[in-house]
Simulated scan of single mutants.
Amino acid sequence: MTLAADDLISYLIEELNIAPPIDLDTELFSSGILDSVSLVSLIGFIEEKARTTIPPVDVTLENFDSVDRIVAYVSSLE
């Protein structure tokens, strides 16, 4: 199953209490919007929604620093 950008943005706003606007290219970790504690929840959401497992070695800024990067990463797992 894929992960939709809209679902991810909704999760960030509603569950992690991130103030909108969040665009597809908003830097989530580099900007300090999210931290390591948020990352744990985010990974759980992604794994559940996309029905996949994320290996710890793949948890990098390259894969997780924006909604676009997360969606592209999850798509590459299929």
Rank of each mutant, 00 (worst) to 15 (best):
residue 1 M to A: 15
residue 2 T to Q: 14
residue 3 L to A: 12
residue 3 L to H: 10
residue 4 A to P: 05
residue 5 A to S: 14
residue 5 A to F: 10
residue 6 D to K: 15
residue 6 D to V: 11
residue 6 D to F: 07
residue 7 D to W: 05
residue 7 D to I: 05
residue 8 L to C: 09
residue 8 L to Q: 06
residue 8 L to M: 06
residue 8 L to V: 08
residue 10 S to D: 10
residue 11 Y to F: 15
residue 11 Y to S: 02
residue 13 I to E: 15
residue 14 E to L: 09
residue 14 E to H: 10
residue 15 E to H: 05
residue 15 E to S: 11
residue 15 E to I: 01
residue 15 E to N: 14
residue 17 N to W: 07
residue 17 N to Y: 08
residue 18 I to N: 05
residue 18 I to P: 01
residue 19 A to C: 08
residue 20 P to V: 04
residue 20 P to W: 13
residue 21 P to S: 13
residue 21 P to N: 08
residue 21 P to W: 09
residue 22 I to R: 02
residue 23 D to H: 09
residue 24 L to W: 08
residue 24 L to E: 14
residue 25 D to C: 08
residue 26 T to K: 10
residue 29 F to K: 03
residue 29 F to A: 03
residue 30 S to G: 08
residue 31 S to T: 05
residue 31 S to I: 06
residue 31 S to V: 06
residue 32 G to C: 13
residue 32 G to I: 11
residue 32 G to A: 12
residue 33 I to R: 10
residue 34 L to T: 06
residue 34 L to E: 00
residue 35 D to H: 10
residue 35 D to W: 05
residue 36 S to R: 05
residue 36 S to Y: 04
residue 36 S to E: 01
residue 36 S to V: 10
residue 36 S to I: 04
residue 36 S to M: 06
residue 37 V to P: 07
residue 37 V to H: 12
residue 38 S to T: 00
residue 38 S to L: 00
residue 38 S to D: 15
residue 38 S to Y: 01
residue 39 L to A: 03
residue 39 L to P: 01
residue 40 V to S: 08
residue 40 V to Q: 04
residue 41 S to M: 06
residue 42 L to H: 00
residue 43 I to R: 02
residue 44 G to V: 02
residue 44 G to A: 15
residue 44 G to M: 12
residue 45 F to H: 15
residue 46 I to L: 09
residue 46 I to F: 05
residue 46 I to W: 04
residue 47 E to D: 12
residue 48 E to F: 03
residue 49 K to I: 01
residue 49 K to F: 00
residue 50 A to W: 02
residue 51 R to W: 07
residue 51 R to I: 05
residue 52 T to N: 04
residue 52 T to M: 13
residue 54 I to D: 02
residue 54 I to T: 02
residue 56 P to L: 14
residue 56 P to I: 06
residue 57 V to P: 05
residue 57 V to I: 14
residue 57 V to A: 14
residue 57 V to T: 13
residue 58 D to P: 05
residue 59 V to Y: 07
residue 60 T to H: 10
residue 61 L to D: 07
residue 61 L to K: 06
residue 61 L to N: 13
residue 62 E to R: 05
residue 63 N to G: 08
residue 64 F to G: 06
residue 65 D to I: 08
residue 66 S to E: 11
residue 68 D to W: 11
residue 68 D to M: 13
residue 68 D to Y: 11
residue 69 R to W: 01
residue 70 I to C: 04
residue 70 I to L: 03
residue 70 I to Q: 00
residue 71 V to H: 04
residue 71 V to P: 01
residue 72 A to L: 12
residue 73 Y to M: 08
residue 74 V to W: 04
residue 75 S to H: 12
residue 76 S to A: 04
residue 76 S to D: 01
